[in-house]
Design a protein around this nucleic acid. Structure first.
Lengths: 120, 120
DNA sequence: TTGAATACATTGACCGCCTAGGCATGATAG
DNA sequence: CTATCATGCCTAGGCGGTCAATGTATTCAA
């Protein structure tokens, strides 16, 4: 039903639509990393609020790679194969523009929500 | 491609997914109103950033009505039939919880986005 | 009369999230 | 020894809300 309970707050996971790629790009921009770790980072840095599911994460990574916003390389670490990603320069630009768009969006929402208390 | 250009910023309209019902409830909570006006209010209060499409608006209104979060009544004003909506008490509760969830979500996103520049 | 604005509504396509599963290895507990 | 968990990648199918497009109807200005 596209909702996730978290500490009494029901989160409509559709809120994530369109933000997942930005979050992934942001985490990768902080240093080369791989899928499994990205999911953990997103969870921990959001104080457990987001649970980035594999069914969302991996397709998103593949999309971003296909759009050449990410480059990938397989590496073997302690007997485990990991696919490390890093941002291309196009990826950095895309991230910047997604962040700008996100903040404009959030401001727009807050304007509607708090129309009576927002100082212009 | 689910993106809208607005003053140079590309907005991923998917960001709206999951926020539309909240925005509608919020506008109605500010006073009984009807579909066409809701769309205009959302647009103007967000400074033109959101464009609530009819194909999103009317199905959402019907959903909310069916969930008994809204009550509706037809009225004739200057030869035009309008369907006026107002919030039920359940609707007000739903709005409050959606706003809480939204703000938690936005905080979560900002935590991930600004993880490196947060001052402790 | 033509068009724009108002006002409601529906349709099918699209697409990204979710659930649920698969595969494989290493470490730990029983 | 053997589950079981954590790690690590991946995919298929379903779901459902948004989008573009279209329809209907009225009012009013050019």
């Amino acid at each position: 039903m596209y909702s996730i309970g978290f500490e009494g707050i029901i989160m409509d996971s559709r809120l994530l639509w369109g933000a997942v790629e930005m979050l992934i790009l942001e985490v990768i921009s902080q240093g080369s990393t791989y899928g499994y770790e990205i999911a953990q980072t997103v969870t921990s840095e959001s104080n457990g609020y987001f649970d980035l599911k594999e069914g969302s994460l991996y397709p998103a990574l593949h999309r971003l790679e296909q759009q050449k916003l990410l480059t990938a390389s397989w590496q073997e670490v302690e007997g485990r194969r990991r696919k490390y990603y890093k941002l291309s320069s196009a990826g950095q630009k895309a991230l910047d523009s997604k962040k700008t768009a996100w903040r404009e969006f959030a401001r727009g929402v807050e304007k509607v929500l708090g129309a009576q208390s927002v100082t212009p």
